[in-house]
């Protein structure tokens, strides 16, 4: 199988005169490269094609620009966890279902397992590491502790990121709205009861100006 794939790639791309892949080293982070030749004529401002091997990229994570090397196939989740040792987002289903890898891309909750790291260049990535610390938790994190909204805790960082994003848009939610709004995250220990209470408590605390 792998052999036939390789054959396809070799002949397929060159025969059809695709833009030639540019090696990683020469590209760095710029996705828009210089002119390239296609069918014998110059295409203005043709985009760079990077990869398939190691490619240097820059990711803006929690307000800080980080330089790292990934392959185009590296997911944002794997880039964070394996390349940058940012491990709050967890790998559970790895298929965009369970929500354990939830973080924010440009302020909106997203599954990091279903985003290519290279496709997140130029986006603002926010992970749980940028919220509270054990000593200075956010109102929601404190409410998770108060309401015992976690057991093994493996779903918790993703859950917190989903709930914080929900509260930004729904500062005064009802119980039913919480149930609707946190539908993209799963927990196995069964902490949902505490989570609903925690979100409602945090909403109250936040309105109190805390």
């Amino acid at each position: 199988m792998a052999d036939s794939t390789k054959t396809t790639r070799g002949s397929g791309l060159s025969r059809r005169g695709f833009l030639k892949g540019i090696s990683a080293g020469g590209v760095a982070t710029g996705l828009v490269g210089g002119a390239a030749v296609q069918h014998g004529k110059v295409v203005e401002a043709a985009p760079a094609v990077v990869g398939p091997g190691d490619t240097a990229i820059k990711l803006k994570i929690n307000g800080e620009v980080k330089s790292l090397t990934v392959e185009p196939r590296t997911t944002l989740l794997d880039a964070l966890r394996n390349r940058l040792d940012i491990t709050g987002a967890k790998k559970v289903c790895d298929r965009g279902t369970c929500g354990a890898c939830t973080l924010w891309i440009d302020g909106q909750p997203a599954y990091a397992c279903s985003v290519l790291a290279i496709d997140a260049e130029d986006s603002e990535i926010t992970t749980i590491e940028s919220l509270g610390t054990p000593e200075r938790m956010t109102a929601l994190q404190q409410a998770f502790v108060n309401n015992d909204a976690q057991q093994c805790g493996f779903c918790t960082p993703g859950m917190i990121m989903a709930c914080e994003a929900f509260l930004k848009e729904n500062p005064s939610p009802t119980r039913d709205q919480v149930r609707d709004g946190i539908s993209g995250n799963l927990c196995r220990c069964g902490t949902y009861h505490g989570i609903i209470d925690a979100v409602l408590e945090a909403a109250k605390t936040m309105k109190g100006g805390a």
């Binding site: 966890r81 394996n82 040792d85 491990t87 709050g88 987002a89 967890k90 790998k91 992970t127 749980i128 590491e129 919220l131 509270g132 610390t133 054990p134 000593e135 938790m137 994190q141 404190q142 998770f144 502790v145 108060n146 015992d148 976690q150 805790g153 493996f154 918790t156 960082p157 917190i160």
Partner: peptide, 21 residues
């Protein structure tokens, strides 16, 4: 009584086997 490791879990700082690098 709130669990002792609540804060470290709620902030994503708890290191699980999967997180050991």
């Amino acid at each position: 009584i709130s669990r002792l490791d609540g804060p470290v879990k709620a902030t994503g700082q708890a290191k699980y086997a999967y997180d050991m690098n």
